[in-house]
Design a protein around this nucleic acid. Sequence first.
DNA 1: GTCTATACCCAGATAGAC
DNA 2: GTCTATCTGGGTATAGAC
Lengths: 211, 211
Amino acid sequence: MSSMTTTAPDGGTRMRSEDRRALVLEAATRVFGERGYHGATTDAVARAAGVSQPYVVRMFGGKEAMFLAVLDRTLDRIIGAFGEALDENRRTADPDDVDALAMCIGRNYVDLLRDRGLLLSLMQAFLLGADPDIGPHARAGFRRVYRYLRDEVGLPADRVHEVLAQGMLINTVVGLKMVDDIDDDPAAAELLGQLFPTKLEVLLSMRESAS
Amino acid sequence: MSSMTTTAPDGGTRMRSEDRRALVLEAATRVFGERGYHGATTDAVARAAGVSQPYVVRMFGGKEAMFLAVLDRTLDRIIGAFGEALDENRRTADPDDVDALAMCIGRNYVDLLRDRGLLLSLMQAFLLGADPDIGPHARAGFRRVYRYLRDEVGLPADRVHEVLAQGMLINTVVGLKMVDDIDDDPAAAELLGQLFPTKLEVLLSMRESAS
DNA sequence: GTCTATACCCAGATAGAC
DNA sequence: GTCTATCTGGGTATAGAC
């Protein structure tokens, strides 16, 4: 519905501004994820989204505001994925089986890799705790995830801890692009095989994708 | 020995160039850790080390070479800490007690936080896997740590995995500067209490330290 | 809403004196 | 070895047309 487009007289494609904003946000997520906040340029985001550089600046009011918007969207998607895992587990398994629940959360988390840059731009934000504007925002986001797992999902404290640790390792290995070395180094293959027991294809599909 | 300094006639302090290099490397570690590769400026490193900006550029041949030097030093120190943990455990505990060994490694790892920026600049490198020069270097470094834990320390595969995950979570929480919110949010305190059962003081000491 | 053109600043690197 | 001065490129943001 909101993705409806209208064709302009000249054959070019125009779209509703909310959709364009979503598109730019997605492009920004990818660019910030790959190069980090400081390494990313508003120009790279603009090119990835197919719009002009001054436009993306205007759209969000500045680079930093854009990054914070990416961060918020990312957190929403992660919490959403955890919520879905919770529902799914309630339907298909014993609600008290914590192992099954944790596994289900892990699967849904790995699926988030399909939204390219999502987990990486989050990780980039997490390393900017020293930044006076981004830092507080990032900390609040992390605690939001922590509390959701503890209070809404209802995992015991040590399980929350475990899930988070596993998540950070996944983010790191993805950030490293360790898949790129999977054919050259048995250690890389071993580690990735352990980390992605069921979903290795998700990772492999990220090797030679488009920019 | 190599830290001997000689006082110049004008009262200023000169030192051997290797020492100066080590000093700059340490400063660079802090700056890269706080702001990331792209966010860090050679000028900030120079000021932190008390030398001129062109000098640090010359000293390493460029910003990127300096970052790679920081990365190498960091990996050496981490492997060194693990080696010490291994020795310590062999002396004081049953060499086959994997739990004791893992715990000992964890303690030595947390001690590395005293070298400010060390674990963070490493983490920053790990998120730059997409960079054509830094990426391969960072991947090789990660696998070096992985292999050391597996082959030299002799941890079973699932333990290596666990130790790495825990390490990445520690790095993340430090990068977030989560300690800054420890008084304001019980969730922050809870998480940190779990993550640093014995060594919370190491973290707390990092709150209002010098720049 | 979206573009082109451009102002302005900042950072990495070089030249060259001491 | 180490500094000061400076060139140069590139990146954010603004002005203003369409």
